[in-house]
Design a protein around this nucleic acid. Structure first.
Lengths: 229, 229
DNA sequence: CGCGGCTTTGATGTTCATCAAGTAAAGTGG
DNA sequence: CCACTTTACTTGATGAACATCAAAGCCGCG
């Protein structure tokens, strides 16, 4: 592991959360923080465990999910680097109501909630920024759910592909970080149907599939399917 | 309309939001606040309109919803008296992403966002309380969506009836404040199926229906249906 | 009293989950 | 490095759950 302070400076640079802190507060964060590496597939935190820290994703990809009986997980949201994982829920209740696991090799950077609470009390710019971020996250989750409930399966698949293109990978050709099963868990459908519809898109010449790699060939039609079913 | 300050004192008494304010701040709220009466069915605020005020429901029942083409609204949440309506979304973006309307005759009490922001900056107990409330609301909305996606129609109807019993009316016999159509919009199903399943429950001797009035006769079975499908 | 909206029930078709079965890929231990 | 096991992926067939369509009764309201 390289110099921690160096790392911290690097990630703080882009970070919309900690940038509101004063130099003194940042020093406290640097002293308090822990950095943990999680291998792809590893559980980061489980439902029911106490909430002690604010988690911040430095690199990788993480899913926030709820597991149900019968191997039926439901993914609530994905966190990208520079996101605060589970920010929405850490201020309510003492235990996690959801679980977190790494979709790719990830580095999580954690700070004690007691320190975060201290900052909230002494730095109003910071707490204001938290309020804004939470509001944004809530809007996104609500929006996501609305979109799911309105779309048929084809529309959902189109929608999630567009998300990967626009929000995560910023390119028309990428390696899917998640299995077909997990894709189904994000958009609420079975693995079989995820595959079926991806195959349809391939036959219709909208995408190209090579195992985990997906290339978008006709984004206009994908957008049309995402909107009009 | 009766004395405003008197009203304010009455509602502040139970209010978890404003109770964190100092007497001076409360005086500012009392001076700034507006109180508006909305008739059942009236639109309180529409998607796309600027967010200028924090709304607080004094009496009545309000729905937060998103409308879609084809007379297909989707209800995101209901607000009971003493709830801050749309609290989750007011700190992000300049325009409402959702609409609000009154399900029953309602009194809304509004305070300028500029004042709320002032309090956030000067009163850290208040902002901390806001964070907790938002976290709680987010948890509830996420939970609500998870439950919907996992249940079949019978389970959803059972679930929403239990919500009315436990959260809103606190009695086993109540007048439904909403139409069958709105009930469908909360739990994501068609009006016809809401009616069909309510009829099934009536035939199975679980509930009694007299127009808008519903009486629960067998809450144990309702709970069982809500949990196990 | 008649019109429009809400409610109710039945018949029909579509969408999607489930089941089954087979292939490819990816770990695992010798 | 190769057999072996396991996990992920893929396709088809079937049935269940649910939306849609249609039609009729009910109720409040001008």
């Amino acid at each position: 592991m390289t110099n921690n302070n160096q790392d911290f400076d690097n990630c703080e640079y882009q970070n919309y959360l900690f940038q509101e802190l004063t130099p003194e507060e940042l020093a406290l964060v640097a002293k308090n923080k822990r950095e943990v590496f999680y291998k792809k597939g590893e559980i980061i935190c489980e439902e029911g465990k106490p909430i002690n820290e604010l988690l911040y994703l430095k690199s990788g990809l993480v899913k926030l999910f709820k597991s149900s009986p019968g191997n039926r997980d439901q993914i609530i949201s994905l966190a990208k680097p520079m996101d605060c994982v589970g920010l929405l829920t850490v201020f309510h209740g003492i235990n996690y109501k959801f679980s977190l696991s790494a979709l790719e090799d990830s580095v999580i950077f954690s700070v004690d909630m007691s320190l975060i609470n201290k900052f909230i009390f002494q730095n109003s710019i910071f707490s204001c920024s938290l309020l804004r971020k939470m509001s944004k996250l809530a809007d996104e989750i609500i929006q996501h759910n609305l979109e799911l409930n309105q779309r048929h399966l084809r529309g959902r698949i189109a929608h999630i592909l567009l998300d990967f293109i626009n929000d995560i990978y910023k390119t028309h050709s990428f390696d899917l970080p998640i299995s077909r099963k997990e894709m189904g868990e994000i958009i609420g459908m079975t693995t079989e149907n995820v595959i079926r519809i991806l195959s349809e898109f391939r036959k219709d010449n909208i995408i190209e599939i090579n195992g985990k790699n997906i290339t978008i060939k006709d984004i206009k039609r994908l957008e049309k399917i995402s909107e009009h079913g």
